[in-house]
């Protein structure tokens, strides 16, 4: 199949790549750009492990085909920490025991980051809504909700 050229911005860096139009944004990130932090849990948009921010909003990277990623501004899990310092939501996941096997964590954290960008002090209900498309098999979600709602609460 003929390849298409596209440019996209990932974590502030501009990439010009030439890929098959059937490739998904998830495969572009993992195999073309080499950012393997974004996970593939199903490939059909059911588990949320591949969640990234596309133009600032959470989206399943496995459902976006290459042509639709043209010109997009993407933030992945690798782009959250600044100069080695964990983003507050990453730190909250660590501190609250919200991570076990960790395979869902990058997607879970990106969904949470999207929520916190729009709503810095979410209620537990709002936090649940934000991650309702992200499956976790280890934690039972309790500590994930604790982490999300604790980020901007300073006691």
């Amino acid at each position: 199949m003929n390849k298409i050229s596209l440019d996209l911005t990932v974590n502030g860096q501009v990439y010009e790549i030439s890929v098959s139009p059937t490739l998904t944004l998830l495969d572009i990130l993992r195999y073309e750009i080499g950012l393997t932090g974004t996970k593939k849990g199903c490939g059909t948009g059911d588990c949320g492990a591949c969640t990234v921010l596309v133009n600032g909003r959470a989206a399943n990277a496995c459902l976006i085909l290459a042509p639709d990623a043209k010109g997009a501004d993407i933030t992945t899990i690798e782009g959250l920490a600044v100069e080695g310092e964990l983003h507050p939501i990453q730190q909250a996941f660590v501190d609250h025991g919200a991570i076990q096997c960790g395979f869902c964590s990058p997607g879970m954290i990106m969904s949470a980051a999207d929520l916190l960008n729009r709503n810095p002090n979410p209620t537990a209900e709002e936090a649940k809504n934000a991650i309702s498309g992200n499956l976790c098999r280890c934690t039972g979600y309790i500590k994930i909700i604790e982490a999300i709602t604790a980020v901007n609460k300073h006691e």
Binding site: R30, I77, Q90, V94, I99, Q100, S105, I109
Partner: peptide, 21 residues
């Protein structure tokens, strides 16, 4: 003590390497 998991920072930043990676 409620010690956070030692591997959690790697998992929270996408650095942890699973076989697929």
């Amino acid at each position: 003590k409620r010690v956070p998991k030692l591997d959690a920072p790697d998992k929270a930043t996408g650095r942890a390497r699973y076989p697929q990676d």
